[in-house]
């Protein structure tokens, strides 16, 4: 499988603490092992507590690109929170972009404080669909809660990304990376989360 375009621009986004960096780097390591040139741009640090966070991945067969994606130039957005999908679309969206979004919402504190209103599911979903060539919605957190570990929502979503067959990485490569980077005791749970994610798309 090869890249749809070169460079291929992937965004992994969510709310601080959801684990977007973990899956972005995992994807990065595998692609680097597979001979792709790669750069990831991130902002992290506690200033992101509860705020919007995203990693940008620049993937190429020919050279190392800079870490920042030009406006309107994302190919794929993988998002742990649907409002964040929309936020990324507003900066990086275009006619051909594909989005994969977790359905679980995380309320901004401004909503709890009564200053803002979070969009209805129908409106938010409609907007994402309207702005994506293809929009997938995955109940990643629901599945993770079923597995008894909300923390693996990101791995369920990673599974959905594998299932959608949009990147030149395989399930076996992901598991291999997990074996060398995750604690042994957590592997089985993460394998399950990955499989459940794959199943949502297959």
């Amino acid at each position: 499988m090869s890249l749809a375009t070169d460079p291929y621009n992937l965004i992994v986004c969510g709310v601080g603490g959801q684990g977007n960096i973990l899956i972005a780097r995992l994807i990065g390591r595998i692609l680097a092992n597979n001979g792709y040139y790669l750069a990831i741009g991130e902002t992290f640090g506690a200033a992101q507590r509860g705020g919007s966070v995203f990693s940008s991945l620049r993937i190429s067969k020919t050279r190392t690109y800079g870490p920042l994606i030009p406006n309107g130039a994302a190919n794929l957005i993988v998002s742990l929170e649907p409002l964040e999908t929309l936020r990324m679309l507003s900066n990086f969206g275009n006619e051909k972009v594909v989005t994969i979004s977790n359905t679980q919402t995380t309320m901004p504190v401004g909503v709890l404080a009564g200053r803002n209103e979070y969009p209805t599911e129908e409106k938010l979903r409609g907007a994402i669909e309207e702005l994506s060539q293809r929009a997938l919605f995955v109940p990643a957190t629901d599945i993770a809660v079923e597995l008894g570990a909300p923390i693996v929502s990101n791995i369920v979503l990673l599974g959905a990304l594998l299932g959608a067959k949009l990147l030149p990485i395989s399930e076996e490569e992901v598991k291999e990376d997990m074996r060398s980077t995750f604690p042994a005791g957590k592997l089985e749970l993460n394998y399950q989360a990955l499989q459940r994610g794959i199943d949502t798309v297959a």
């Binding site: 200033a47 309107g72 929309l86 969206g93 309207e130």
Partner: peptide, 24 residues
Amino acid sequence: GPSEAYQAKLKEVTEDILISRGLT
């Protein structure tokens, strides 16, 4: 960049609902 039609659509569908996410 993205077509004018896309940009117009983007403005239309995000305008009222893209609320900010403050740090806490």
